[in-house]
Computed example of a mutant assay.
Amino acid sequence: MDLMKRVVLVLGIAVLIVLSIVGIAVASESYVISDYSGASMNGRTTIVDSNSNWTSAPKDPNVVYIAVWAPKPYQVYIEDALVKVVRERGLKPVLVGNVTMYDLRGRFVMFYSPMVGHGGSVLYRMVSLSGILYYSYAGDAKSAVDTINHGLEFSESAISKSSEKFCQASMNRLMKLKVANQTCGVAYWWNLRAKVGKLSRANPYEMIANEIASQLDQFLTSS
């Protein structure tokens, strides 16, 4: 009987040690992942005759106007991350509120996220959002606002098609305005979440913001 008690005690201690090691590992890790995501860029530039009445936009391509439509504190972190990427590309970032005032004046970036969440346990915390990133070299802010205001469907099954509407609307408008450069990029994330262990010093809001900003960096590099 004494032997059996010792075996049980040893096994119990071993289990506790394993659970402690696993707990420390979970509490120390951090990562970003999404259930569903994608990105595309249309680099179409219309070649026109110099005698035609086609125009160029934006007025100043060295300025990038940035709008983030997302709840706080996500908004602040995403703004900071986007501004940093724009500066690193040698461009001038300008955060704006009333975006239509800056239509076609400089390049334009908008991040739109109507859905956020949070969760966690004793060992970790998690924050998440679902959103769409829109980039227009011509600075087409009006098309982005119109697309959102016209009842954009926002769900896991619809977010891919919904994101495509941004560039479709922009290209249609720029064709009517006879703007030659119609370069447009769009990216989307469904349930983009950052999981951070309680022993990690990582900031989950910054991790999500940096993921979004890395996509903008790709758009700027390609345009």
Rank of each mutant, 00 (worst) to 15 (best):
Y102G: 04
S136T: 09
Y134I: 08
Q182N: 09
N172R: 11
V85N: 02
K84S: 15
I78N: 02
K72C: 05
V96G: 10
C167D: 05
C184W: 14
D140I: 02
K161P: 01
L82V: 09
V76L: 07
V83A: 10
D146V: 13
M171L: 06
S128G: 08
V122S: 14
N98V: 09
T147D: 03
K72N: 13
L174I: 02
N181R: 07
A169I: 01
V83Q: 12
G185P: 03
A138P: 02
S121T: 12
K72T: 14
R125T: 14
P71I: 05
Y77M: 03
M171Y: 01
A81D: 01
K161N: 14
G106L: 00
Y112L: 12
R173A: 11
R87V: 11
P71T: 13
N172W: 06
K142W: 14
I132V: 14
A180R: 05
V94N: 09
G120K: 08
Y77W: 03
V127Q: 01
E156V: 12
K72Y: 10
Y74E: 07
G185T: 04
V99N: 05
E153M: 14
A141P: 13
C167H: 04
V83K: 13
Y135G: 12
S113V: 07
L177E: 15
P73V: 04
R105I: 10
N149L: 06
R105K: 15
V116H: 00
E88C: 04
A81F: 05
L152R: 04
S163W: 02
K84G: 08
L123V: 00
M175W: 08
S162K: 01
P71C: 08
P114A: 05
L82F: 14
K72Q: 12
K84W: 10
V85L: 03
S128E: 13
V145L: 13
D103L: 12
V145Q: 09
G185M: 02
A180T: 02
L123P: 03
V76T: 15
V116G: 01
C167R: 10
P93K: 06
W189D: 05
S163Q: 02
F166L: 00
G106R: 02
V99A: 12
R173F: 04
E153P: 14
Y124W: 08
S163H: 07
Y112T: 07
F111G: 06
S162C: 00
M110W: 10
G117Q: 00
E88M: 06
E156M: 12
A158P: 00
I132C: 15
C184N: 13
F108T: 06
L152V: 11
I132K: 13
S130L: 07
Q168H: 09
Q168P: 02
E153S: 13
N172Y: 06
A187K: 03
F154D: 04
S160H: 07
D103E: 12
